[in-house]
Nucleic acid binder design. Structure first.
Lengths: 238, 238
DNA sequence: GTTGTAATGTTGTCTGATAACCCGATATAT
DNA sequence: ATATATCGGGTTATCAGACAACATTACAAC
């Protein structure tokens, strides 16, 4: 069987090529929400591939939240408002991508800290204290250290009362922390930990006092300190 | 053939059930990065489903960025640092989810405006002016109005020089704008448009003058104004 | 007019086969 | 002895055709 994809990347496998093609049509508005995609049989015929491949392509679109399938009926383009928010990011985590991601992280976490200061519950404050209490026990910056740091940031995000912050902060900080754990620090470990604890403490206190501006500032100092400890420059416009 | 999924939701179709199961194992650390998944044949046998289903399940995991497959070798759990950033968001866009998303948008776009003020190129400034010039022609807040507004915000994001901002801002503002287009405004359309133009103008000028703080403030005013025009309250901690 | 039923089209799943590919083992050549 | 070439087994990728499950529509029966 001949296929019609000579103009596309040879490396990508068939289902991805087809899915990409339809994704483009959807984003470009050629296929509008509610529109029905061709049947699997039709697509199989027009693209010159087996139904297996077509099905996998459609599954991909479904996973990306672009279409939804109904058995016995067909595949339909979903409403824009109910699409997933997702970031493609094939990029390697080189130094450049890393600083860019860090740059995005900063305003998010600052705002999260501010909102947490205003909105946190008593239970969340306790959870934050508990997370802090775990820090001094950290002996290396492997699993336990990273996890403890991650927990701290996640709990703050949760204290905003806004689930979007939790998802974004967790996704981003998780990714960054693991890089940090590898790219690791200049200077002795004790210094890193003690400084981290001290900065976390500042944030903690500001939140406890429901001091939004203070929390924001403390978070900025922490992120700047953390970045500096791994020898990273990032631009934050005052 | 009998299957072993009675304990799971009956509604989900087979591939999703299997994929979910493996995703859980990965997130729980039972399967660590680098680990090899069972072969398709094995999984087919142990789960009591056909290889078609297994393949689709694996494709789903691959789309979620959790595993990567190598032809002739197998499927492997990917490193955490190279996983996609993605936000699950099955939620309906009710008023509550909308304000939450808006709350996330604000600090992002403020920072984007500030960075754009510092980093923009001449070409990007021209693109911004061009986008502004298109606004007065908007007659309704349907396709053209939404697109023009979206363009404005996207160009600012691009002017940060940081691709992550582009992706986040586009994903979020796109989603919000389409809701706004529907939920539409109290008050006459001319007012909405003229106010939008005026606020965009302020942002534009601040960016032109490379006034980061001004851009940030102007963006905040714009977002607050925009929210207010659709009768939305949101919390932004000063 | 409503309800039951058959027909049809579509997605979901199954089965078995072939092609493309990777990797290690063995054989061969230098 | 080392390097290279070839082969074989295992795995994923794709193909082909079938049946099952489900939705929609049209039509028949009441």
């Amino acid at each position: 069987m001949n296929n019609d994809f000579e103009h596309l990347a040879r490396t990508e496998h068939l289902p991805t090529r087809i899915a990409t093609q339809f994704a483009k049509r959807i984003y470009d508005g050629v296929l509008k929400p509610g529109d029905k995609l061709p049947t699997e049989h039709e697509m199989s015929k027009t693209f010159g591939v087996s139904r297996t491949v077509v099905r996998e392509a459609i599954a991909q679109l479904r996973n990306e939240g672009l279409v939804e399938t109904r058995q016995g009926v067909g595949a339909f383009v979903v409403e824009r408002t109910s699409r997933q928010i997702r970031l493609e990011d094939g990029k390697k985590m080189d130094r450049h991508a890393f600083t860019d991601l860090y740059q995005l992280r900063v305003p998010l976490e600052m705002e999260a800290a501010a909102l947490a200061a205003v909105n946190h519950t008593d239970a969340q404050m306790e959870a934050l204290d508990a997370a802090m209490a775990r820090m001094p026990g950290v002996k290396d910056w492997g699993e336990s250290g990273v996890t403890a740091d991650l927990d701290f940031h996640r709990i703050i995000a949760e204290a905003t009362g806004n689930d979007y912050f939790v998802q974004f902060v967790v996704a981003i900080s998780e990714r960054i922390s693991h890089v940090i754990a590898i790219a690791r620090a200049e200077g002795p470990l004790e210094d890193v930990i003690s400084k981290t604890i001290s900065e976390h403490g500042d944030i903690c206190e500001a939140i406890r006092n429901r001091d939004a501006a203070g929390a924001r500032a403390a978070m900025l100092r922490h992120l700047q300190g953390s970045a500096q400890r791994v020898g990273l420059e990032f631009e934050f416009v005052e």
